[in-house]
Simulated assay, not measured.
Amino acid sequence: MSPTTSHSFAPSLALSFALTAVSTGVWAQSAAPAAAGASATASAAPSATAPPAPSPNWGAGLLLSAETQPYKGMDNTLKVLPALQFENRWVRLFGPVLDVKLHEAADSQLALRLRYSDTGYKASDSAFLAGMAERKSGLWLGAKGEWRNGLGQLTGEWMADASNHSKGQQLKLVLETMQHLGPVALVPRLGLVWQDKKHVDYHFGVSEAEARSGRPAYAGAATLNTELGVRLLARLAPQQSVFLDLSATALGSGITDSPLVGRNTVSALRLGYLYRF
């Protein structure tokens, strides 16, 4: 199927996570080794001492994103998106994610999080979706925490639908580690995303009024998705960095049992560039 700019599903959650990880934090700061010619050394194990408050800084970049879609008949998406970054001692903004910092130390972080999530669709996105009511994208509000040691990083996130479209919630846990390969950092990860019944039913349910021949009514159920991914980061210069992020997500049965869904896994490729002023 040809690439298009139709709405995207769960991969957009990984997209915003990848953007945030690349743009900020001890993980991202140390993940892009110095440009060629400079030595790359492994960072020492972090202490519990809070790091100095960051001075205000800005950045801008570009993201190319290609994603497969779970819905029957929906084309894969290809998007080119601008990205704006800002951080000071109180807030961190990158792309669709805004964090309000509550705690920040060398080995842990805690923040309130606001995210715009492009997870909706229109009936016109696929012939199979004809007659379905529009599912809207919206804002999600919650909290996220990070814990690091010498072996890796664990990130936890709880989000609720602040736009009140689905009235749903989701929990996400991501475990990742980092290895330096010369001027490139390799960051493999394993992620688990639990989505409640309301969230799944809104995006993948079929009401009695929407049911058709070959598309029976379906009430979504809470589900658990599993993501495997890897991110490669490189610093081209002190103010410039690039990343490549590859991921595959196995969808839970609450989603795959829906008559709207035509595949059990979705995949994504993202290529990004960031310049810090």
Rank of each mutant, 00 (worst) to 15 (best):
R148P: 05
N149S: 11
G150M: 05
G152E: 03
L154F: 10
T155L: 12
T155P: 05
W158D: 04
M159N: 12
A160I: 06
A160L: 12
D161T: 10
A162Q: 10
A162W: 09
N164F: 00
H165Q: 12
H165R: 10
H165F: 09
H165G: 03
S166I: 04
S166V: 05
K167G: 06
K167L: 00
K167S: 09
K167W: 00
G168H: 10
Q169D: 14
Q170L: 15
L171C: 02
L171R: 06
L171V: 09
L171A: 12
K172T: 15
K172Y: 09
E176R: 15
M178V: 11
Q179A: 14
Q179V: 14
H180P: 03
L181S: 08
L186C: 05
R189K: 14
L190C: 03
G191I: 04
G191L: 05
G191S: 14
L192M: 11
V193G: 01
W194A: 08
W194T: 02
K197S: 14
V200R: 01
D201M: 04
D201H: 05
D201A: 03
D201Y: 02
H203V: 06
F204I: 05
F204W: 09
V206N: 09
S207H: 00
A209D: 12
A209Q: 14
A209V: 07
S213I: 11
G214I: 00
P216A: 13
P216F: 01
P216L: 04
A217E: 12
A217I: 07
A217P: 10
A219Q: 11
A219P: 00
G220Y: 01
G220E: 02
A221Q: 15
A222E: 07
T223K: 04
T223G: 07
T223M: 07
L224A: 10
L228W: 14
L228S: 09
L228K: 06
G229E: 03
G229I: 03
V230P: 07
R231P: 00
R231N: 11
L232C: 06
L233T: 01
R235G: 15
L236V: 08
Q239D: 12
Q240N: 13
S241R: 15
S241I: 00
V242W: 07
F243T: 04
L244S: 09
L244F: 09
L246C: 06
S247A: 15
L251G: 08
L251K: 08
S253T: 13
I255S: 06
